[in-house]
Amino acid sequence: MVSLAGEFTKGLWKDIPPFRLVLGLCPTLAVTKSCLNGLGMGMATVFVLVCSNIIVSMLRKVIPKKVRLASYIVIIASFVVIVELLTQAYVYSLYQALGIFIPLIVVNCIILGRAEAFASKNTVVRSALDGLGIGVGFMLSLGFLGAVREILGKGTLFEGSQYMIHVFGQSFEPFTFMVEAPGAFVCLGLLLGIMNVLGD
């Protein structure tokens, strides 16, 4: 019997996506050009994941087995549309930066995976904590990857906010490779390797 706190904390290290649970790679690679974009995407994912986990868990005894996936998809897609509308209305710059990856949260395998593997079998509180843990883990990973790529690729941190810092000073010649597509793949691959070393 895992404790309630355990449901939350497992997402932060033991099952942290995308490093341990290798899922949701597309948004991970696409939006981590800067730390803030990564965190923004992570927050949107947390919202969808927690809400859909709660609803799926509430309805777990009502939804017939044969149409469960279709029901989960409708529920998840609805929360994604809510995120789409809210980001457009309140944080338009984030909406522009994330582009098509906001609607694509719906096909993030992490979300459907948690609904099917966890929320459909557990109580509402446990499902909410599970969603929060995995979601926050995902958000921190995206923020971390974004920070690494931004620091090396642009020499800044938190670009786009008033807290922007030039990590290596103004004269730093940026390693542009890191903010381009190839850098995303290589950076994530190497971080995965480092995580494997730390995990052993």
Binding site: V62, P64, K66, V67, V74, I75, A77
Partner: peptide, 14 residues
């Protein structure tokens, strides 16, 4: 019947 009702209800609410 249950399948159809549940799915339609979810879609309608959403």
């Amino acid at each position: 019947v249950k399948m159809i009702v549940v799915l339609s209800a979810i879609s309608a609410v959403c």
